[in-house]
Structure formats: structure tokens, C-alpha cells
Design a protein around this nucleic acid. Structure first.
Lengths: 196, 196
DNA sequence: GTCTATAGGAAGATAGAC
DNA sequence: GTCTATCTTCCTATAGAC
């Protein structure tokens, strides 16, 4: 590859890594597979990143930003609180149906990071960010509709994330899209009923 | 090690593998680490199991049986439907608090298995078994209290599993035991309210 | 059945010519 | 900055003596 700044190569490698992860799984995403996907020489890897862990940190941050942006966008627009909640859930669900492997990577990366001392902090921050984002969404929803929540927000936020996470995981493992979506909507209506 | 039948060695290796997984994670559970934990020679591995995948299959089945037994036991004994549901949830939660790494292994194994062609079937069956077990528990609960469910059982079963799975995952990643248990009880009471 | 020794390969990381 | 060649380590699996 002709002369390209190391900064640009960093981005190219992060994107290539994500493609490999989505296609082959995190465990098979080796430095060799990444540089092959990015069409670079193996040696290029280590003057762009000090180590593989450093690349993974960038990958996690990239996916994080992408996910949070998607989530915030999904709950935009008006309607009753229940409408907005249901609409957000359906947009999310559509994304899962269309990109199941992308979501699988999220879980794999989380677990991989937690087992790696160099990445454990990043993994914990990932979840904290998700919780903060959902909390923010729920605050926006209640403010926009003038309602309050009958349960503490930290509890509601964890409840909603867990349902979304858990149902996604079930769907990825078992594949019954219909029952899973029905369960998701059941939970969304439950949460909507907790606003008063 | 003195002369021991290959069958006994199989069991010893499965148990050793589980200990290593709980301690070090699935990714670091190599054949070498397993035989070391079981205090056997490396060569012993391959006249007990044809391959590492064959051992992993046994590990998954062992953990499966153990988990289902625990779940069924947790929902025994009498009381109202809500009492029994809450009691079962709390017994489960106690187990998570006391054995977090054991639960982490469940998720890791599931994902590892799904990415491995030789184990993908086993992984799918694992989830089907969990769904069937929860379905059975919910049928027992409604029969014992003379109530029916206002939502289809396949939906309720997936909902309950997802909340349990999702909240466990959040707790393992983030560690707020209090909010997580509160969210778990919120879901349990919601489910109890769906019986009529 | 049981062990030691080793094959055969893939991983992350580096050295050093250009 | 860029590449090829290579170091070192660790993996699964097997061969073959006892």
C-alpha cells in the first residue's frame, strides 16, 4: 500500500477488525486476519497499535459510539410515552433482525474484554455508558410527556436494558423472532405503565 | 496416575475443565490446562476424548443438567403464585451472587459453542432446554394455583428468561447488585400479575 | 491404559533492510 | 513509513515406548 499516514491506517484497521469480527467472530479475529482484511502487511499492525489490546480498545469505543447514536435516534419523534417506547423498541428490533452478527459481536467483545486485564475497565465503562444512555432516554421521555416514573430510574434503566439484552441473546441463540418481539413489546408496555 | 478406567477419567476431566473455565475463562481453558488441573499427563486427554470439542460437549451437558436441576428446585414449595415466583428468583439471585464466575462461564460457553460448527447444535439445544424448563415451571405454577396466563406461554417464558439472563449479564459486567435485584423483582411481580 | 516426546501449525510481536 | 522474514510461545493432536 502506498504511503498512508498511520492515523488513517489506524481507522482502516479498526474498520477491518469489525468486519472480521462480524463475519468470523471475536476469537478468530487475529492480527493476521485483520491486516489481510485491510489489505496491509502484517508489520503494519504494530506501528499503528502498540498491541492487539490497544486495537480492541479502539474497536470497542467505535462500536459504543455507533450503538449509542442508534439508540438515541430510535427514541426521537413524538407521540405518547408508550408510542415512543414501542417505536424505539421496534427500530432496535429491526436492526437486530437485519444485523444479527453485529449484535453477537457486542456480547462477544464484552466477555472477551472482561477476561482481559488490559480491557476490563473498558468493558465496565461500556455498560455504564449504556445504562447512562437509557437513563437519559427515559428522562427525556418522561419530561416530554410530563409524567414521572413510579420506580427508581436506576432500576428501570437496568430492567429495560436487561430485557433488550436478554431477548436479543435468546433470539441470537434460538431464533424465534415472533415470540421474542412479542416479549419485547410486553416489557415495553409494562415500562410505559410505570409512568404516572 | 495409577490405572483408572477411561470412563472415570472422562468425568475427572470434565470436572477439571469446569474448574478451569470458572477460574480462568473458556478461552484460556486449553487441553494442557485441563490435564494439569486434573493432574494427568497430556497424552491422557486423547484416549478419553476424540477431540477438545467432544469434551466441551460433555461440559455443556453437565452444566445444563446442573442448572436445570437448580432452577426446578428453586420453584418448589407452596404459597401464592407471586410468592413462589419471588422465592425462586431470590434463590437464583443468591446463587449468582455467590458464584458469579460460574454464570459467566455459561454465557461464554454458549457463544463459543455457537461459533464452532461442531458445537452449534449443542448450543441451540441448550437454549431450547432452558425455555422448555421455564415453560414447565410456569405451567406448574399456574396449575398449582388454579390460574391461567393472560399471555402465550412461549412469550412469557422467553420474557422471564431474558430478564434473568439480561440482569445477570448486567450484574456481571457492572456490579450493582441492589438495583439489579430490584429490577428482577419488578419483573417477577409483573409476571405474577399476568396470571388470572 | 499410561506416559514422554514431538509433530505441525498458528498466534502476537519484533528486527532490520529498504 | 513500509515491508519480509523470523523469534518465541503456545496450541491441538499423535507416535510410540512401556
Amino acid at each position: 500500500m502506498a504511503r498512508v499516514s498511520a492515523d488513517v491506517r489506524r481507522d482502516l484497521l479498526v474498520e477491518a477488525a469489525i468486519r472480521v469480527m462480524v463475519r468470523d467472530g471475536v476469537a478468530r479475529t487475529t492480527t493476521r486476519a485483520i491486516v489481510a482484511e485491510a489489505d496491509m502487511a502484517l508489520g503494519a499492525f504494530h506501528y499503528c497499535f502498540r498491541s492487539k489490546a490497544e486495537l480492541l480498545e479502539s474497536v470497542i469505543e467505535e462500536i459504543q459510539a455507533h450503538t449509542v447514536d442508534l439508540a438515541l435516534a430510535a427514541f426521537e419523534e413524538g407521540g405518547t410515552l408508550e408510542d415512543r417506547l414501542l417505536r424505539g423498541i421496534r427500530i432496535y428490533w429491526q436492526h437486530v433482525l437485519e444485523n444479527p452478527d453485529e449484535h453477537r459481536v457486542t456480547y462477544e467483545l464484552g466477555q472477551f474484554a472482561l477476561r482481559n486485564p488490559e480491557l476490563a475497565d473498558v468493558a465496565r465503562k461500556q455498560y455504564e455508558l449504556y445504562i447512562a444512555s437509557i437513563t437519559q432516554i427515559m428522562e427525556t421521555l418522561s419530561a416530554a410527556t410530563g409524567l414521572g416514573w413510579t420506580e427508581p430510574l436506576p432500576v428501570l434503566a437496568r430492567y429495560l436494558i436487561s430485557v433488550i439484552d436478554g431477548l436479543t441473546l435468546i433470539y441470537l441463540n434460538e431464533g424465534d423472532a415472533e415470540s421474542t418481539l412479542a416479549a419485547l413489546e410486553l416489557a415495553a408496555r409494562h415500562v410505559a405503565g410505570l409512568a404516572a
